[in-house]
Amino acid sequence: MASEEAPVKAVQVKLVLLGEAAVGKSSLVLRFCSNDFNENTSPTIGAAFLTQKCRLENRIVKFEIWDTAGQERFHSLAPMYYRNAAAAVVVYDITKAASLEKAKAWVKELQRQANPNIVIALVGNKLDLVSDGPAKSVDEPAEATTDAEGDDSTPPPPSTTAQPSSSDSDDLRQVSTAEAETYAKESSLLFFEASAKTGANVSELFTEIAKTIPMESLAPKPAQGAAAAGGRGGRQEQGRGENVQLGEGQQAKKGGCC
């Protein structure tokens, strides 16, 4: 461990963002890469690419982020971007129940089709709309109009939790934390609720991913044993991943792997 402390070389990690249109994938990336937020972005066409470094105690991870387009018809392009990805952030919008369904479909696809060691994080975005006062009042009008337009024709969201959770104080929330968290646990995903707008949990999210990635899997030839030890091992939403660090002693690999 001591050997790589001083001349820390960045390890490149390819990360892909997936999720329904307008859940805030690009906004999360913008927050993470430029600590900025923009109400009016462009929808992503095909995919956008950004990089950002993430400094851990013992190494630097350089994320190469592919932010994909959310609309269903761009789906067939997704494999081009998640191919070789070491990590995936699957985003849903906690104010849209259907977006969690879509997220689940992505997880399923990734688990079948993507790199077997891929670290997947499930992220419920737009936390600011439901938790506390200030952000909420700003965005409510815009959200309300879109909802009104959609409500009468869209098939009812499949989620069963939509109704009960909307009864409490955050009326915009359609996906309860418990529901998503349970699902994340079952499927061995990292889980966060975040807000690109306020920045809540955004850097935590990426840091956690950086910690969780089994470094061996990034080498040209993935070492199976170590990967299995660390890979998919992301069940520590609260534990802040002390245990994951274990496998990382051996990662004396050079950076430019992708």
């Binding site: 249109a21 307008a22 109400e39 009016n40 972005t41 462009s42 929808p43 609309q71 815009a142 879109t146 337009e149 959609g150 009468d152 024709s153 869209t154």
Partner: peptide, 24 residues
């Protein structure tokens, strides 16, 4: 009338050349 398409359009209206004045 609304449809899946109209919903998707709605999501993207604010995200269409937002730098041009008219779209604000």
């Amino acid at each position: 009338k609304s449809s899946q398409s109209t919903d998707e359009i709605e999501k993207d209206l604010n995200r269409s050349l937002p730098e041009y004045k008219a779209y604000q």
